[in-house]
Nucleic acid binder design. Structure first.
Length: 294
DNA sequence: ACCCAGGCGACGA
DNA sequence: TCGTCGCATGGG
Protein backbone atom coordinates (compact mmCIF):
# COMPACT_ATOMS: atom_id res chain seq x y z
CA UNK A 1 0.00 0.00 0.00
CA UNK A 2 1.23 3.46 -0.87
CA UNK A 3 1.98 6.00 1.76
CA UNK A 4 3.53 9.44 1.80
CA UNK A 5 7.15 9.20 2.83
CA UNK A 6 8.35 11.74 5.28
CA UNK A 7 11.12 13.72 3.63
CA UNK A 8 14.21 13.13 5.65
CA UNK A 9 16.81 14.16 3.14
CA UNK A 10 16.75 17.69 1.80
CA UNK A 11 15.88 17.92 -1.88
CA UNK A 12 17.94 20.16 -4.14
CA UNK A 13 16.99 21.53 -7.54
CA UNK A 14 18.70 23.83 -9.99
CA UNK A 15 16.69 26.99 -10.69
CA UNK A 16 18.36 29.32 -13.13
CA UNK A 17 21.82 29.95 -11.76
CA UNK A 18 20.84 29.04 -8.22
CA UNK A 19 20.39 25.87 -6.21
CA UNK A 20 17.27 25.66 -4.07
CA UNK A 21 17.17 23.12 -1.27
CA UNK A 22 13.90 22.26 0.44
CA UNK A 23 13.17 20.20 3.52
CA UNK A 24 15.93 21.89 5.49
CA UNK A 25 15.19 21.93 9.18
CA UNK A 26 17.04 23.42 12.12
CA UNK A 27 19.09 25.89 10.14
CA UNK A 28 19.29 29.55 11.06
CA UNK A 29 22.02 31.21 9.02
CA UNK A 30 22.71 33.99 11.49
CA UNK A 31 23.07 31.53 14.35
CA UNK A 32 25.11 29.04 12.36
CA UNK A 33 27.44 31.40 10.52
CA UNK A 34 27.98 33.91 13.31
CA UNK A 35 28.19 31.75 16.43
CA UNK A 36 31.96 31.60 16.67
CA UNK A 37 32.55 28.28 14.87
CA UNK A 38 33.49 29.78 11.49
CA UNK A 39 35.08 33.16 10.90
CA UNK A 40 34.71 33.87 7.20
CA UNK A 41 31.03 34.72 6.72
CA UNK A 42 29.54 38.18 6.45
CA UNK A 43 25.96 39.44 6.44
CA UNK A 44 25.08 41.37 3.28
CA UNK A 45 22.76 44.37 3.35
CA UNK A 46 20.01 42.32 1.66
CA UNK A 47 19.94 39.72 4.45
CA UNK A 48 21.89 37.05 2.61
CA UNK A 49 25.25 35.74 3.82
CA UNK A 50 28.45 35.49 1.85
CA UNK A 51 31.49 33.46 2.73
CA UNK A 52 34.40 31.43 1.47
CA UNK A 53 35.14 27.76 2.12
CA UNK A 54 36.85 24.95 0.22
CA UNK A 55 38.29 27.57 -2.12
CA UNK A 56 34.84 28.68 -3.27
CA UNK A 57 32.84 31.81 -2.65
CA UNK A 58 29.18 31.33 -1.81
CA UNK A 59 26.21 33.62 -1.31
CA UNK A 60 23.41 31.96 0.61
CA UNK A 61 19.94 32.91 1.80
CA UNK A 62 17.28 31.13 3.80
CA UNK A 63 13.51 31.05 4.20
CA UNK A 64 11.65 28.63 6.49
CA UNK A 65 12.62 25.14 5.36
CA UNK A 66 14.41 26.49 2.28
CA UNK A 67 18.06 27.19 1.65
CA UNK A 68 19.08 29.02 -1.53
CA UNK A 69 22.62 28.89 -2.85
CA UNK A 70 23.19 31.69 -5.35
CA UNK A 71 25.21 31.49 -8.53
CA UNK A 72 26.24 27.89 -8.13
CA UNK A 73 25.44 24.46 -9.52
CA UNK A 74 23.99 21.18 -8.30
CA UNK A 75 27.39 19.66 -8.88
CA UNK A 76 29.05 22.11 -6.52
CA UNK A 77 26.25 21.62 -4.01
CA UNK A 78 26.88 17.88 -4.02
CA UNK A 79 30.63 18.34 -3.94
CA UNK A 80 30.84 20.91 -1.16
CA UNK A 81 27.83 22.63 0.36
CA UNK A 82 25.62 19.67 1.18
CA UNK A 83 28.29 18.37 3.49
CA UNK A 84 29.44 21.82 4.62
CA UNK A 85 26.02 22.68 6.03
CA UNK A 86 25.71 19.15 7.44
CA UNK A 87 22.41 18.74 5.62
CA UNK A 88 22.34 14.94 5.90
CA UNK A 89 22.24 15.04 9.68
CA UNK A 90 18.86 14.99 11.40
CA UNK A 91 19.11 17.85 13.89
CA UNK A 92 15.45 17.53 14.83
CA UNK A 93 16.16 14.06 16.15
CA UNK A 94 19.18 15.33 18.06
CA UNK A 95 17.22 18.17 19.65
CA UNK A 96 14.56 15.68 20.68
CA UNK A 97 17.14 13.28 22.05
CA UNK A 98 18.86 15.83 24.25
CA UNK A 99 15.73 17.56 25.54
CA UNK A 100 14.48 17.09 29.06
CA UNK A 101 16.91 19.00 31.23
CA UNK A 102 15.25 22.32 32.09
CA UNK A 103 18.45 24.36 31.88
CA UNK A 104 19.57 22.78 28.63
CA UNK A 105 16.11 23.30 27.17
CA UNK A 106 16.46 27.02 27.84
CA UNK A 107 19.74 27.09 25.92
CA UNK A 108 18.20 25.12 23.07
CA UNK A 109 15.52 27.78 22.60
CA UNK A 110 18.23 30.33 21.92
CA UNK A 111 20.18 28.16 19.56
CA UNK A 112 18.06 25.52 17.83
CA UNK A 113 19.03 26.86 14.41
CA UNK A 114 22.72 26.15 14.85
CA UNK A 115 24.36 23.46 12.77
CA UNK A 116 27.94 22.34 13.15
CA UNK A 117 29.56 23.18 9.84
CA UNK A 118 31.95 20.66 8.31
CA UNK A 119 34.87 22.95 7.70
CA UNK A 120 38.14 22.08 6.05
CA UNK A 121 40.38 20.39 8.60
CA UNK A 122 43.37 22.66 8.10
CA UNK A 123 41.26 25.84 8.18
CA UNK A 124 39.57 24.73 11.39
CA UNK A 125 42.85 23.79 13.05
CA UNK A 126 44.57 27.02 12.04
CA UNK A 127 41.57 29.17 12.93
CA UNK A 128 41.39 27.75 16.42
CA UNK A 129 45.12 28.10 16.94
CA UNK A 130 44.49 31.78 16.24
CA UNK A 131 41.49 31.79 18.57
CA UNK A 132 43.45 31.18 21.76
CA UNK A 133 43.35 34.00 24.32
CA UNK A 134 41.59 36.13 21.69
CA UNK A 135 38.20 37.76 21.01
CA UNK A 136 36.00 36.61 18.12
CA UNK A 137 36.09 39.98 16.27
CA UNK A 138 39.86 39.99 16.38
CA UNK A 139 40.10 36.34 15.34
CA UNK A 140 38.14 37.32 12.24
CA UNK A 141 40.52 40.20 11.55
CA UNK A 142 43.61 38.04 11.80
CA UNK A 143 42.09 35.40 9.52
CA UNK A 144 41.09 38.08 7.00
CA UNK A 145 44.63 39.40 6.83
CA UNK A 146 46.05 35.87 6.61
CA UNK A 147 43.77 35.05 3.68
CA UNK A 148 44.34 38.34 1.84
CA UNK A 149 48.10 38.04 2.13
CA UNK A 150 48.67 34.31 1.62
CA UNK A 151 45.49 32.78 0.21
CA UNK A 152 44.98 31.96 -3.45
CA UNK A 153 42.10 33.54 -5.40
CA UNK A 154 38.80 31.69 -5.02
CA UNK A 155 37.69 29.44 -7.84
CA UNK A 156 34.30 31.16 -8.20
CA UNK A 157 32.80 34.20 -9.90
CA UNK A 158 33.15 37.12 -7.48
CA UNK A 159 30.33 39.71 -7.30
CA UNK A 160 31.40 43.35 -7.39
CA UNK A 161 30.56 44.22 -3.78
CA UNK A 162 32.48 41.31 -2.26
CA UNK A 163 34.83 42.19 0.62
CA UNK A 164 38.47 41.71 -0.24
CA UNK A 165 39.05 38.94 2.28
CA UNK A 166 36.40 36.68 0.73
CA UNK A 167 38.12 36.81 -2.65
CA UNK A 168 40.88 34.57 -1.34
CA UNK A 169 40.79 31.00 -0.15
CA UNK A 170 42.19 30.06 3.22
CA UNK A 171 45.93 29.62 2.66
CA UNK A 172 47.03 26.00 2.47
CA UNK A 173 49.38 24.45 5.00
CA UNK A 174 51.88 23.96 2.16
CA UNK A 175 51.82 27.65 1.28
CA UNK A 176 52.15 28.78 4.89
CA UNK A 177 54.88 26.26 5.70
CA UNK A 178 57.27 28.16 3.44
CA UNK A 179 56.77 31.45 5.28
CA UNK A 180 58.59 32.87 8.29
CA UNK A 181 57.44 34.58 11.46
CA UNK A 182 58.65 37.87 10.01
CA UNK A 183 56.59 37.37 6.88
CA UNK A 184 53.54 36.74 9.05
CA UNK A 185 54.03 39.99 10.98
CA UNK A 186 51.52 42.01 8.90
CA UNK A 187 48.85 39.49 9.91
CA UNK A 188 49.32 40.72 13.50
CA UNK A 189 48.66 37.31 15.03
CA UNK A 190 51.01 38.06 17.91
CA UNK A 191 52.55 35.12 19.70
CA UNK A 192 50.34 32.78 17.64
CA UNK A 193 52.38 33.28 14.44
CA UNK A 194 55.00 30.72 15.46
CA UNK A 195 52.20 28.27 16.32
CA UNK A 196 50.62 28.68 12.87
CA UNK A 197 53.95 27.95 11.22
CA UNK A 198 54.67 24.91 13.35
CA UNK A 199 51.27 23.49 12.49
CA UNK A 200 51.68 24.25 8.79
CA UNK A 201 55.12 22.62 8.71
CA UNK A 202 54.10 19.46 10.52
CA UNK A 203 51.19 19.03 8.13
CA UNK A 204 53.09 20.00 4.99
CA UNK A 205 55.88 17.63 6.01
CA UNK A 206 53.51 14.73 6.52
CA UNK A 207 54.23 14.28 10.23
CA UNK A 208 50.51 14.85 10.78
CA UNK A 209 47.89 13.80 8.23
CA UNK A 210 44.65 15.51 9.15
CA UNK A 211 42.52 13.23 6.97
CA UNK A 212 43.60 10.29 9.14
CA UNK A 213 42.11 11.96 12.20
CA UNK A 214 38.52 11.59 10.99
CA UNK A 215 38.16 8.02 12.15
CA UNK A 216 41.02 6.89 14.39
CA UNK A 217 40.36 6.64 18.14
CA UNK A 218 39.73 10.10 19.57
CA UNK A 219 42.55 10.06 22.09
CA UNK A 220 45.03 9.13 19.37
CA UNK A 221 43.75 12.03 17.26
CA UNK A 222 44.04 14.40 20.21
CA UNK A 223 47.58 13.30 20.96
CA UNK A 224 48.56 13.70 17.32
CA UNK A 225 47.24 17.27 17.13
CA UNK A 226 48.93 18.18 20.40
CA UNK A 227 52.30 17.37 18.85
CA UNK A 228 51.93 20.85 17.38
CA UNK A 229 53.42 23.65 19.43
CA UNK A 230 50.49 25.87 20.33
CA UNK A 231 47.86 23.14 20.22
CA UNK A 232 46.58 22.07 23.61
CA UNK A 233 43.43 20.23 24.66
CA UNK A 234 41.02 23.03 23.78
CA UNK A 235 42.35 23.76 20.28
CA UNK A 236 42.66 20.05 19.50
CA UNK A 237 39.05 19.54 20.52
CA UNK A 238 37.90 22.42 18.31
CA UNK A 239 39.85 21.15 15.31
CA UNK A 240 38.32 17.70 15.72
CA UNK A 241 34.80 19.02 16.20
CA UNK A 242 34.70 21.73 13.55
CA UNK A 243 37.17 20.32 11.03
CA UNK A 244 36.97 16.55 11.33
CA UNK A 245 33.36 15.78 12.07
CA UNK A 246 33.98 14.49 15.59
CA UNK A 247 30.72 15.70 17.14
CA UNK A 248 31.34 13.95 20.44
CA UNK A 249 34.20 16.37 21.12
CA UNK A 250 33.52 18.98 23.76
CA UNK A 251 35.82 22.01 23.70
CA UNK A 252 35.87 23.85 27.02
CA UNK A 253 36.59 27.52 26.60
CA UNK A 254 35.99 30.19 29.24
CA UNK A 255 32.30 30.53 28.32
CA UNK A 256 31.63 26.81 28.47
CA UNK A 257 33.51 26.50 31.76
CA UNK A 258 31.36 29.26 33.22
CA UNK A 259 28.16 27.69 31.90
CA UNK A 260 29.08 24.22 33.10
CA UNK A 261 29.86 25.46 36.57
CA UNK A 262 26.97 27.87 36.85
CA UNK A 263 24.21 26.01 35.03
CA UNK A 264 25.06 22.33 34.85
CA UNK A 265 26.94 21.62 38.03
CA UNK A 266 29.95 20.44 36.06
CA UNK A 267 28.53 17.80 33.72
CA UNK A 268 26.22 17.55 30.73
CA UNK A 269 23.01 15.53 31.01
CA UNK A 270 23.68 11.91 30.04
CA UNK A 271 21.46 12.08 26.95
CA UNK A 272 23.56 14.89 25.51
CA UNK A 273 26.91 13.10 25.57
CA UNK A 274 26.77 11.44 22.13
CA UNK A 275 26.16 14.90 20.66
CA UNK A 276 28.37 16.81 23.09
CA UNK A 277 29.96 18.95 20.41
CA UNK A 278 26.66 20.12 19.00
CA UNK A 279 25.23 20.73 22.45
CA UNK A 280 28.41 22.58 23.35
CA UNK A 281 27.76 25.03 20.53
CA UNK A 282 24.18 25.57 21.71
CA UNK A 283 25.46 26.34 25.20
CA UNK A 284 28.31 28.52 23.93
CA UNK A 285 25.85 30.61 21.92
CA UNK A 286 23.40 30.86 24.81
CA UNK A 287 26.11 31.88 27.27
CA UNK A 288 27.42 34.62 25.00
CA UNK A 289 23.98 35.91 24.04
CA UNK A 290 22.99 36.25 27.68
CA UNK A 291 26.42 37.54 28.73
CA UNK A 292 26.55 34.82 31.32
CA UNK A 293 28.69 35.85 34.28
CA UNK A 294 29.85 33.99 37.33
C1' DA B 1 42.41 53.85 30.13
C1' DC B 2 41.39 49.43 31.26
C1' DC B 3 39.87 44.72 30.94
C1' DC B 4 39.97 40.45 28.87
C1' DA B 5 39.57 37.14 25.20
C1' DG B 6 36.73 29.91 22.06
C1' DG B 7 44.75 28.84 25.78
C1' DC B 8 49.16 27.36 25.78
C1' DG B 9 54.07 26.65 27.07
C1' DA B 10 57.48 27.30 30.42
C1' DC B 11 58.64 27.12 34.93
C1' DG B 12 58.89 26.15 39.87
C1' DA B 13 57.14 23.67 43.82
C1' DT C 1 51.17 16.45 38.48
C1' DC C 2 49.50 20.94 39.59
C1' DG C 3 49.09 26.11 40.10
C1' DT C 4 50.93 30.46 38.16
C1' DC C 5 52.60 33.62 34.88
C1' DG C 6 53.81 35.86 30.48
C1' DC C 7 52.38 36.25 26.00
C1' DA C 8 50.91 40.11 21.49
C1' DT C 9 47.15 42.50 20.31
C1' DG C 10 43.17 45.40 20.06
C1' DG C 11 37.77 45.37 20.42
C1' DG C 12 34.44 46.98 23.57
Amino acid sequence: MLHVEKIKRPQAVQSGGNVIISGVRCLDLAQTLDCGQAFRWTLLSDGRWRGTAYGRLLTVGAAPGILTLYDTTLAEYEEIWRSYFDLDRDYTAILTAVQGDPVLDTALEFADGIRILRQEPWEALCSFIISQNNHVPRIKGIIERLCIRFGRPVDSPVPEDTPEALRSAFPSADDLARRTVDELAPVRAGFRAKYILDAARKIAGGQIVLEQLFCIPLDDARRKLMEINGVGPKVAECALLFGMGRIECFPRDVWIKRAMELLFDGALPEAALPYAGIVQQYIFHYARMTKLKL
